[in-house]
C-alpha cells in the first residue's frame, strides 16, 4: 500500500504547515471547542433543557435575566438558557455534521464516477448539478421538508433535515472532485496502470482516491459550515424538532415568543453567537486547508514596484 503511505506522508506534511497557520488553528479551536461542549453537555449544566426553573415561591421564573439566574437566565417558559444552549449543540452539530458527511460522500462518489468514467454518466451528472444550481435551494428544501412531514412517515424531524440537506448539497463537492479526477487521469501512472491491466476499482482505490482525499477533506469542512447554517435556518422557520431544540429552534422560540420585545437578549444572542462560532470555525479551517492544497496566485502586477537598492545597501 505504497500510495497510502504517500498519502500519510502528505497528510503529515500538511499538518506540519498547518500548525504554523494562525487562522487555521483558530478555526480548529472553534470547531473542537463546540464539539467538546456538545459531548460534555450533561457535565456542563445541572439542569435539563426542558426543566422549569422555579423561584422560592414555586412559580416559574420566566424571562429571568442572567443576573437573577446565572449564567444565561431563563426563557419564556422558565427553562435554563445555558442548558438549552449546550444541549442544543448536540442537535445542531449532529444535523450539520451528518448532513455535511452525506453531501461529502454523495458528492465525492458521483464526482469520482463522473470524472473517471466520463461519457454519458459525466454528462448527465454535470447537467444535473447545473439544474440544482439554478433552483433556489431554500424554497426547494422548505417544500420538500414540509411535504415529507405531511406524509407522516416514521422518521424523526431531525432525520428529515439531515437527509434533505445532505442530498441537496453535494453538487459543489461533485464538481470539484470531478475536475481533480480529470486532471489526475491525464497523468502518466494512471495510463500505465491501465496498460498493465489494472481494474477500475483498483485504479480508483490505489491512484485516484489517495490524491483526491485531501481535497475532499478541505471541501467537507466548508460544506459543514453550510450545513450548520442551513439547519439553523430551517429550524428557525419552524422545521426543527421541538423536543430536541437546536440553536436554530431556540431562535425560533425566542422570536415567536417575543424575546425581542421583552428585551431578553440572553435568549436570542447566545444561540446565534454559537452558530457563528461553529460556522466561522469551519470556514476558517476549510479556507486554510484549501489554500494549502492549491496555493493561490502569489501576487499580481499592480502590487507595487521592485525596490531599488542604493549603492552599497544590502537587500
Amino acid at each position: 500500500m505504497e500510495t497510502w503511505q504517500r498519502l500519510k506522508r502528505n497528510l503529515s506534511e500538511l499538518w506540519q504547515s498547518f500548525r504554523r497557520n494562525r487562522m487555521g488553528l483558530i478555526g480548529l479551536g472553534l470547531v473542537l471547542s463546540a464539539l467538546a461542549v456538545a459531548i460534555l453537555a450533561p457535565w456542563l449544566t445541572p439542569y435539563h433543557p426542558q426543566q422549569v426553573i422555579r423561584d422560592a415561591n414555586g412559580r416559574g421564573l420566566t424571562f429571568a435575566p442572567p443576573s437573577v439566574h446565572p449564567p444565561l437566565g431563563t426563557d419564556d417558559g422558565g427553562h435554563d438558557v445555558w442548558a438549552q444552549l449546550v444541549y442544543g449543540a448536540r442537535s445542531s452539530l449532529t444535523v450539520g455534521f451528518l448532513a455535511g458527511f452525506i453531501a461529502m460522500f454523495v458528492g465525492s462518489f458521483l464526482g469520482i464516477l463522473a470524472g473517471y468514467f466520463g461519457g454519458w454518466l459525466d454528462n448527465f451528472l454535470m447537467r444535473l448539478t447545473d439544474v440544482l444550481l439554478v433552483i433556489p435551494d431554500l424554497p426547494l428544501m422548505l417544500v420538500l421538508v414540509a411535504t415529507i412531514r405531511q406524509m407522516q412517515l416514521k422518521i424523526s424531524p431531525l432525520t428529515v433535515l439531515i437527509l434533505v440537506i445532505g442530498l441537496l448539497y453535494w453538487t459543489s463537492t461533485a464538481r470539484l472532485v470531478r475536475s481533480q479526477v480529470l486532471s489526475i487521469k491525464e497523468r502518466q501512472f494512471v495510463a500505465r496502470a491501465r496498460a498493465i491491466g489494472a481494474g477500475h476499482a483498483h485504479i480508483i482505490r490505489r491512484h485516484i482516491l489517495p490524491q483526491v482525499l485531501p481535497l475532499i477533506v478541505a471541501n467537507t469542512v466548508l460544506i459543514l459550515s453550510t450545513a450548520i447554517l442551513i439547519e439553523s435556518g430551517l429550524a428557525f422557520l419552524g422545521l426543527g424538532d421541538p423536543t430536541k431544540p437546536s440553536w436554530g429552534t431556540m431562535l425560533n422560540f425566542a422570536f415567536d415568543r417575543n424575546a425581542i420585545s421583552n428585551g431578553a437578549w440572553w435568549f436570542y444572542l447566545p444561540p446565534g453567537l454559537a452558530i457563528v462560532w461553529v460556522s466561522l470555525g469551519c470556514v476558517l479551517l476549510g479556507n486554510v486547508l484549501e489554500e494549502m492544497l492549491n496555493p493561490r496566485l502569489s501576487g499580481h502586477h499592480l502590487e507595487g514596484e521592485a525596490r531599488i537598492l542604493k549603492h552599497g545597501e544590502r537587500k
Binding site: 501576487g299 502586477h301 502590487e303 507595487g304 514596484e305 521592485a306 525596490r307 531599488i308 537598492l309 549603492h311 545597501e313 537587500k315
Partner: peptide, 14 residues
C-alpha cells in the same frame, strides 16, 4: 524586466 523596472515588489535591484 529589471531594465524596464517591471518586476514585482519582492524584487531588489542594484
Amino acid at each position: 524586466l529589471s531594465i524596464l523596472r517591471l518586476l514585482p515588489p519582492n524584487a531588489r535591484l542594484s
